[in-house]
Design a protein around this nucleic acid. Structure first.
Length: 861
DNA sequence: GACCTGCTGCGGCTTG
């Protein structure tokens, strides 16, 4: 429909004269942009995605005459436009906002964008505005915004919360959302949607462009980004970069499968092979692990074997101090490191051109995740991304065989956008009220233009406005929750400057985990560890962190002070992270590999290597074929066990284990202990398990699924904990001021207190509903669990009684045993038990305090 | 006889 308002030929000629031919998809994006459209660009990293989108606004500006005199593109500008414009170089008003989800990317983007503008003869101001931005630059930006502003979703929300927002942002022509795939599935994505809706209202005709890695639902990702209010005239254009980036997936096959562990996730058995790769596989390697503690352990192990590599190997994970991480990134860019051992903290990133090899230790958990990591190497057009996969246990060989198939088939995970996150909406209402105010009907229409709130009912909307207005029924008496007021002109504004201030303190949707700062006695900050880990240690104890051995000296406030230890070994902290399950796509790929194995097909190197083990599984128990699901019944010293292998990822298996235990106990009262992995689940009991098909069929039924699951999962307690995030995002809990460390335990306690009060006095509070919904969706993966049970309905149950643990069941058994036995010394255990008993003894007092929240807390109880 | 799981990300007052 839309005819581009400009002729691109002069620009192309200009590029050609400089020996550069743009890719077809880049031209498509520019043309579309110049024609007034919005859209989404999907292309492999390192192929010029950034340029594809950035060139649109640049060419537009050049053609309009915003060029520095005499430059090569001056001929693109029509004389009349040139004459009309009075702007001088570098003094143009805000034209483009570039949103990035990661502060660390901002400076690199700035460099790239400035260079591109320079190359086109434009002297554009490209400035950063993130939490790191200095006070002086902020002050300058309060006066005047640059031509291009690189910022984050949170900082955008902040800018929208100042009274002059409309005036400052009213000249905007385009917003680019970089790494949209990182945002879309989270509340940060919802916040971005709301911010974009605001900008569209201020700037009709605004063009929004996203950049995204490959997702299973790219079309939907674009729709969400553009909203129903966006999309220009054509409803949005999806631009795909041509050709797939070549990815070379190699697996480090264990030398001797007979001696290769059946269980475990650390993978140190493969250290010699990995060292060999580090030495000869490339100059610079990123070594990805799945957990922070694993990073620490691998780092130590590498240096213990190769002390001559000290200074050439670094480590990088999310609990390390930002300064330390920044230094590692610099060295990486400079190409002076042989290897960085890291977690997802380096999944995204700066174009690390020197990286020529990526190693993945253990399960990649998802297809997209492995591709993302592989893409960190060969980060240039035409270069091949290489990843070496290192299995840490036998079944991971099957996983790697599966992931290769999935990549070949293009089976990439989707990221589902969130809908109806009312906590984010409440936060937004306060922000908009601070940023010049809103008329209710108008803002409702704007918010309904987003995907996240396209379906919001009048009642829900009224509830949210009422909540921001008075804190809802239960909080109505507390003035600090009357955050917005309606003026006589019908405009809602913040009730006081204090409200705006508190909003700015708490902006954003990321709620951090409980953690304690770790710092050297002399003062340097090293990072953070969970409170619980430090609480279990006494001064003088030694632990490993940030790649060093540290001795705990003392704990003050929320900081653990340490000094270098002389000992050679210490405990490694573990962090309570999210428990990422095997993805839907990868699970399916693994099931296919096992189907093949059951038919005697072992085609890849991975499958041939694991063949003896799978044959053993077949002999001792069985291999589920197509249309079958395996249930093993076994007896050990610990009791009787039932193992079920749906292969649907850990979260589903946890829910399913609880569900099966609940349903089996209903048939015959008894108690179970449970374990779950990405492959299956285990129930243990002193009593024999029933081998009847009908018993298991009814236990695996989809009937009354939600009721049974809620009954057995202690959903109320889960929701209570989930409420912490919601209370924080909705502004019920006010974080401490900067620099005032506030114990997260405190935050947790007060959010639980809110939950209890609301449940009692305002059970219809919609945020409580949201907490329950989030538990179902996120912690239980309810939809996936239901689909799993539906799938099982159509399968034949292969129920096998085994004499011993099998290759499938051993890892589950070992897992559950680890929970019962501790590797720590007996005295430590007694000490810990005493602490546990003491706190258990104190429990009733705590509970009584919580209950008596109507009055003040009784301190003397 | 085999077993050391649990990621990432943002932001902030005070005003001469």
């Amino acid at each position: 429909m839309t005819k581009p308002a400009v002729n691109l030929e002069p620009a192309l000629k200009w590029f050609a004269a400089r020996g550069w031919t743009p890719f077809e998809f880049q031209r498509e994006a520019w043309m579309s942009y110049l024609g007034g459209e919005s859209g989404l660009v999907n292309a492999p990293t390192g192929t010029g995605k950034t340029l594809a989108v950035w060139m649109g606004p640049l060419i537009e500006a050049a053609i309009e005459g915003g060029v520095s005199g005499g430059s090569g593109v001056a001929e693109m500008a029509t004389p009349s436009v040139k004459k009309r414009r009075g702007w001088r170089d570098g003094a143009e008003p805000l034209r483009v906002i570039w949103l990035t989800p990661l502060r660390a990317l901002a400076a690199d983007v700035q460099k790239a964008l400035s260079a591109a503008a320079e190359g086109l003869g434009l002297r554009w101001n490209v400035e950063l505005r993130t939490g790191d931005t200095s006070a002086s630059l902020r002050a300058k930006q309060k006066e005047r915004l640059p031509t291009c502003l690189i910022t984050t979703p949170e900082s955008l929300a902040l800018m929208l919360s100042y009274a002059d927002a409309a005036a400052k942002l009213g000249t905007l022509r385009a917003v680019v959302v970089d790494e949209w795939h990182e945002l879309i599935g989270s509340k940060r994505g919802v916040q971005t949607e709301l911010g974009l809706a605001r900008l569209r209202t201020m700037n009709p005709g605004l063009r929004v462009w996203g950049l995204s890695a490959t997702l299973g639902n790219l079309g939907q990702a674009m729709e969400v980004l553009l909203g129903s209010g966006g999309g220009g005239s054509g409803g949005g254009r999806l631009v795909r970069g041509e050709g797939r980036k070549a990815v070379d997936v190699e697996t480090l096959i264990p030398a001797d499968i007979e001696r290769f562990p059946w269980a475990g996730h650390l993978g140190l058995r493969q250290l010699p092979g990995v060292l060999e790769k580090l030495e000869h596989g490339g100059k610079t390697t990123l070594l990805f692990t799945n957990t922070r503690s694993q990073t620490e352990i691998w780092f130590q192990s590498i240096l213990r074997t190769r002390p001559d590599w000290i200074g050439q190997v670094a480590l990088h994970h999310g609990s390390l101090d930002r300064g330390l991480r920044a230094r590692v990134e610099e060295h990486l860019k400079a190409g002076t490191l042989r290897c960085v051992v890291c977690t997802s903290s380096l999944d995204l990133g700066v174009d690390f051109q020197p990286v020529d090899q990526v190693i993945q230790i253990g399960s990649p958990k998802g297809v997209a995740r492995l591709l993302q990591r592989a893409g960190r190497s060969g980060h240039q057009p035409g270069m091949v991304s290489r990843v070496v996969c290192v299995p840490t246990n036998a079944m991971e060989l099957v996983e790697f065989a599966g992931v290769r198939d999935a990549i070949a088939a293009g089976a990439i995970e989707s990221k589902m956008p969130l809908r109806g996150a009312l906590d984010v909406l409440v936060q937004h209402l306060v922000g908009v009220a601070a940023g010049g105010g809103f008329v209710e009907r108008e803002l409702l229409a704007e918010v309904r233009g987003t995907h996240a709130f396209g379906g919001i009912t009048d009642e829900e909307w009224a509830w949210c406005v009422g909540f921001a207005r008075g804190g809802g029924a239960a909080m109505g008496n507390y003035p600090q929750y009357a955050r917005i007021v309606e003026g006589e002109d019908g405009v809602f504004r913040v009730a006081s400057p204090m409200v705006a201030r508190v909003y700015r303190l708490g902006v954003g949707t990321i709620v951090s985990d409980a953690s304690m700062t770790v710092a050297l006695v002399r003062g340097r900050r090293l990072g953070s560890i969970e409170e619980g880990f430090i609480a279990r240690m006494a001064p003088g104890d030694v632990f490993t962190f940030a790649g060093r051995l540290l001795k705990l000296v003392r704990v003050r406030e929320m900081t653990a002070y340490v000094e270098p230890a002389k000992r050679k070994s210490g405990r490694v902290p573990s962090w309570q992270g999210a428990r990422m399950p095997l993805s839907v796509e990868l699970s399916a790929a693994v099931r296919v590999k096992l189907d093949e194995a059951s038919r005697g097909v072992f085609e890849s190197a991975e499958m041939r290597s694991v063949e003896p083990l799978l044959r053993l599984q077949q002999r001792w128990s069985g291999l589920p074929g197509p249309g079958e699901i395996l249930i093993e019944l076994a007896a050990t010293r610990e009791g009787k066990h039932a193992f079920v292998y749906p292969l649907e990822g850990r979260l589903v298996h946890e829910g399913l284990a609880a569900l099966l235990a609940y349903r089996l106990a209903r048939l015959k009262p008894r108690s179970f202990s449970m374990a779950a992995s990405d492959f299956g689940l285990e129930l243990s009991s002193p009593d024999e398990f029933d081998a009847e098909d009908s018993t298991w069929r009814s236990a695996l039924s989809t009937e009354r699924l939600a009721e049974d699951l809620l009954a057995c999962m202690n959903a109320a307690e889960l929701a209570r904990r989930q409420f912490r995030e919601i209370a924080r995002v909705a502004g019920l809990i006010i974080p401490g001021f900067p620099g005032q460390a506030r114990s997260q335990r405190h935050v947790q306690a007060s959010s639980e207190l809110f939950f209890d009060v609301l449940s009692e006095f305002e059970p219809r509070n919609l945020l409580l509903d949201q907490a329950r919904r989030e538990v179902l969706e996120r912690q239980l993966e309810f939809a996936r669990l239901r689909r799993t049970l539906e799938r099982i309905q159509g399968l034949r149950l292969l129920i096998v009684k085994t004499d011993r643990l099998t290759p499938f069941s051993f890892p589950l058994w070992a897992d559950s045993l680890r929970e019962q036995l501790s590797t720590e010394k007996w005295t430590d255990r007694v000490q810990r038990m005493r602490v546990v008993l003491e706190s258990a003894a104190n429990e009733p007092v705590v509970r009584r305090q919580r209950r008596s929240t109507k009055g003040a807390l009784r301190a003397d109880d």
